[in-house]
Design a protein around this nucleic acid. Structure first.
Lengths: 334, 334
DNA sequence: CTGTTAGCGCCTTCAT
DNA sequence: ATGAAGGCGCTAACAG
């Protein structure tokens, strides 16, 4: 039961492979009504389906893009993936999803495997550690877009939130509510992951804007697994914070967990604000105020830029880092 | 700046393509220390990377599997995807993710495109509408595993929750809490999506077990967008339910939204139980009791079965539908 | 151990 | 309008 190939179709339709190929590529001008019909019939009868691997080998295009997310657990990532997949599908591209799990080694593997697979382009939430690879791709003009995180050494198109602004928005809201002892918590910052750094910077600058003291012991970073410890430290201080800025959804969840466990009340015992919208924010008790990222726009822009590169359109001297604006959703947790 | 190929490496190393190929496939027995070194050097120097499209064409294996989820918005789907991707990656397979969006046409397209791309296997959350395609694949012994939903007409390995049991567990818990007017809400059931049907069946049987009346007006189904209307109907009844069984996470979210809006209190005004664990359940006010699916196990089993099929191991007369057991997580919403 | 040869399934000049 | 021939990059006999 071997696979039916173009040759079989040609034979069946009493014509040649080339003509069948023409037919498949809809170049109907190059054939008579009659042969077309015969080919049609043969395809139908044999239940022929073109092999796109063979086609890709010849055409040097796979109509497949790779997406490597740093950590698929962030709801931000899954939303982005969803939108990207939809957009690429619209343009006839398949999407290979890879989860680097914040591990530079995995990222390196994925990049190499995807390149070996001849994907037409790549969207990466970069770990920032594989500079040599990024550089190679850049040098070869391989279509690539960075998402969410920037890599300083690289001049690669990058789509990022305006993280300073996001933190500022949060601090604005908090100070408006008369909270002065404001803590910020992010997930680990050891590898200098840019959005986390930037959010802390934004927080610092915003406090200064209001002439509020910046207390280093209010700035906490830790892995997801150690967030509870960090929270304990924070609340066992002599002057525990009155408000917490959770720098992403994972942190927010841990903060709310802690608060629930300790039976604290929001916002009376401690106010809470998050960066990243979460599905339960609106109907939580109390509803959680949050700074949201324009996820859809970000994903759409990423897809658009990548597709342009794939289609060989050199973008004019467009800016390399596209900063997207955050948006405050005011609810009742602060 | 053309691509460097095996031929270039061979030339550079003063040997032949076949030997280079041997080298790449680590069949070192077939070559001298010396040539090996030369090949190594040539590869390094030319920065050669094998083209896996060409290899796939020859070997008729792409080391890629496709996953078509019915609806990527269910947190169940994203968790499954995550685990599948991890497992497949461990075995050296890439994963193409597709979201059929509950649209049989999209599903058909994806299946056809993925087959054309010569993926080595497919995991599908089937819409249930493309019987001809399912059948073709089955007939060709193409490696395929269904997930979450069964298709009656097809004898294809399927991994499902024991949905009857899941509903029963929920009703057990509710009756134990002395709730007798129990409503069940699911998302739309028009296309006879098996888990939804089965959960309703399980609910019916469980009520009967307790000699509770089955009221048809307590059984509600609707699209996500119309869930709020359905909830309104329910609570405007003369005898509104005392407890709601939310048949999946999307329903649960809508139920909680409604309850918040109407300022009802859980469980005093209305008790709530969900099928599918959600990230916020534990620290919600009150914490939400939930019947959870063994997602990890389900995904692992799916990956394992598919890999076995891909590797040509005929499974013995194993059952076609694998039923996985749900688990009650008792919290305080009922 | 190494090289030669023949494809894998499709696309693409280039004759006819 | 149609077909023959060559090649995409790699693998797998089979000789030598």
């Amino acid at each position: 039961m071997k696979n039916v190939t173009m040759a079989d179709v040609a034979e069946h339709a009493k014509t040649s492979k080339s003509t069948v190929s023409q037919y498949l590529n809809k170049r109907y001008e190059y054939m008579s009504e009659n042969t077309r019909k015969r080919i049609e019939a043969a395809i139908e009868e044999l239940n022929y389906h073109p092999n796109s691997v063979a086609r890709s080998l010849k055409q040097k295009a796979t109509y497949t893009v790779g997406v490597i997310v740093a950590n698929i657990l962030h709801s931000f990532s899954t939303h982005i993936i969803r939108t990207l997949e939809t957009e690429f599908n619209k343009q006839g591209f398949h999407t290979i999803i890879c989860n680097a799990d914040d591990d530079p080694e995995k990222e390196r593997n994925y990049i190499e495997m995807l390149l070996a697979k001849q994907v037409d382009g790549l969207i990466i939430f970069p770990t920032g550690e594989n500079l040599d690879l990024y550089e190679q791709m850049k040098d070869r003009d391989f279509p690539i877009v960075f998402m969410d995180r920037k890599v300083d050494a690289q001049a690669i198109d990058t789509i990022m939130l305006d993280n300073h602004k996001a933190a500022e928005l949060a601090v604005d809201r908090l100070t408006a509510g008369n909270y002065r002892k404001i803590s910020i918590i992010t997930t680990s910052v050891i590898r200098n992951i840019s959005p986390r750094i930037e959010r802390i910077e934004g927080y610092r600058q915003a406090l200064q804007k209001y002439s509020l003291p910046v207390r280093e012991d209010y700035i906490k970073t830790a892995d997801a697994e150690h967030l509870q410890d960090v929270l304990r430290e924070l609340f066992e201080m002599d002057a525990p914070p009155e408000a917490i800025l959770a720098a992403n959804d994972i942190v927010l969840v841990e903060v709310l967990k802690y608060i629930k466990e300790k039976n604290l009340s929001i916002p009376d015992d401690v106010a809470v604000i998050g960066i990243d919208e979460v599905p339960f924010a609106a109907f939580f008790t109390p509803p959680i105020t949050v700074v949201e990222q324009p996820k859809i726009e970000m994903a759409n822009l990423a897809a658009e830029l990548l597709l342009k590169k794939i289609n060989g359109q050199k973008e004019g001297g467009s800016p390399t880092v596209h900063r997207m604006q955050p948006n405050l959703i005011d609810r009742h947790s602060c």
